[in-house]
């Protein structure tokens, strides 16, 4: 199934990516090349086949509700691009 430039615009928004007009054309083309290739899956009948989201059939992996030490204070913000009063600072939301 083909993807349009409008689709690509929407997908870029959902991906939080900014595309120039040129980018948009380039990605539309290259994504369509891939999607054409992926269409070969249509040949395969997969009715009655269970989807396998996990590789192995592990289940019920739990931990006990036991406290573990959190990160040392000086390590929490060590990678923060911007901080204020012990918090991660971000530009305005709206």
């Amino acid at each position: 199934m083909k993807i349009t430039e409008q689709n690509v615009e929407q997908v870029a928004l959902f991906s939080r990516l900014e595309l120039t007009e040129e980018d948009k054309a380039v990605y539309t083309e290259s994504l369509n090349t891939i999607l054409d290739y992926l269409d070969m899956l249509d040949k395969l009948d997969t009715n009655n086949i269970e989807p396998a989201a996990h590789v192995l059939s592990f289940k019920n992996v739990f931990r006990e509700d036991k406290l573990q030490s959190s990160l040392a204070k000086e390590l929490v913000l060590v990678n923060a691009p911007e901080e204020e009063a012990g918090c991660f600072k971000v530009p305005r939301i709206v």
Partner: peptide
């Protein structure tokens, strides 16, 4: 927000897009 590159912008949504 928490690590790595940040490209500054007026608002959070633009910051996300520019950074990425």
């Amino acid at each position: 927000v928490r690590h790595g590159l940040r490209v500054e912008a007026e608002d959070v949504s633009s910051m996300f897009k520019k950074t990425r």
